[in-house]
């Protein structure tokens, strides 16, 4: 153990910075273990913590698999012991509730039954509200209470109002929610880059872009990265979905790397996943794709030194 090697930067034993852990004079495994324990306790108390993933937006072009990823991320987070809120802003897509294994919330955050009706919706949103303070009538909760779904509204009639208003509500919610340790909110953001203009991601610290192996999709991811940086989100990761062969996967990796887009993982084209999407049933936890997505989440948490039970 040399002079550059004191973990706390003390110049010599007993001088400034020395906590008398005994590491530098340890002469046996037992002494070393005791010193290491003292050091770790000290460092745990004093080391800075990296910013955690608390508000995540999953986005990408329509049909790339955002709902699949959102659902499995949410279920995995819940499996790791987190309290999870899923915000469905994809008002044209009724599948997320099914993929989560939850009932569609009885009431969406805002209905557009009559666009000329007075705006009573959204007035319950207030600064620093917690997940549990969202009125129960808007939420659909899992039996164990770990997983909740809210939806900002569905357009069921093409002549019925404008989706912009739904976007505003989702943005307000993302900005105002107070997410503590052991909690996370995941927004499934409506297809395409236009959502960024609405600022849903402003309350967001993590953006996941789901891409498929088309140049269009890669370009969308590049725009998402660019827009994310512009609103101060440095944590943007791509997930490559529907990859038909290892060669295509490799080509995608290179395309993303060339655009400085960091990748979280790659999912092969899967018949099972298509079947679940067709039948509207949630993916089983033992499904290979489920395991791959859960592993991606583990990697994302590792990147931010967040706890999770290690599952292999």
């Amino acid at each position: 153990m040399g002079g550059f090697h004191c973990p706390l930067g003390a110049m010599a034993p007993g001088t400034e910075g020395c906590i008398d852990c005994g590491l530098c004079s340890a002469d046996s495994k037992a002494e070393y273990a005791r010193a290491a324990e003292l050091l770790r306790a000290w460092i745990r108390e004093h080391a800075p913590r990296p910013a955690a993933v608390r508000k995540m937006a999953v986005c990408g072009k329509g049909g790339v698999g955002k709902s699949l990823l959102t659902a499995v991320f949410a279920r995995s987070f819940a499996g790791f012991g987190y309290r999870v809120l899923v915000v469905d802003t994809d008002e044209s897509n009724p599948t997320l509730a099914r993929a989560l294994g939850l009932a569609q919330p009885a009431c969406c955050l805002r209905t557009l039954d009559d666009q000329f009706a007075p705006v009573e919706n959204g007035e319950w949103i207030r600064d620093s509200m917690t997940i549990d303070e969202i009125p129960a009538k808007y939420r659909s909760d899992s039996a164990d209470g770990r997983l909740s779904l809210v939806t900002t509204g569905k357009i069921e009639d093409p002549f019925q109002g404008c989706a912009c208003k739904l976007g505003v509500l989702a943005r307000e919610l993302m900005l105002n929610l107070k997410i503590g340790d052991g909690e996370v909110v995941i927004a499934d953001v409506e297809a395409g880059v236009e959502s960024f203009g609405r600022g849903v991601e402003r309350g967001t610290d993590t953006v996941i872009a789901v891409v498929e192996p088309t140049m269009d999709s890669v370009e969308v991811a590049e725009k998402i990265r660019y827009m994310s940086e512009g609103i101060g989100i440095s944590r943007m990761r791509a997930v490559v979905n529907k990859v038909p062969s290892p060669e295509v996967g490799e080509a995608m990796e290179e395309l993303l790397t060339a655009r400085e887009i960091r990748r979280l993982g790659t999912l092969p084209l899967s018949g099972d996943v298509s079947m679940h999407a067709l039948t509207g049933t949630p993916l089983s936890e033992t499904d290979e794709t489920y395991g791959r997505i859960r592993h991606m989440l583990e990697l994302l948490l590792d990147e931010n030194e967040m706890d999770h039970p290690f599952v292999r």
């Binding site: 110049m11 010599a12 034993p13 007993g14």
Partner: peptide
């Protein structure tokens, strides 16, 4: 010369050969 160290209060010995070796 790295043989003793300066402290806010004065000087102190190093008391560790590996530290001294590096300094």
């Amino acid at each position: 010369r790295g043989k003793i160290i300066q402290t806010p209060d004065g000087y102190d010995a190093i008391r560790n050969i590996a530290f001294m070796r590096d300094y």
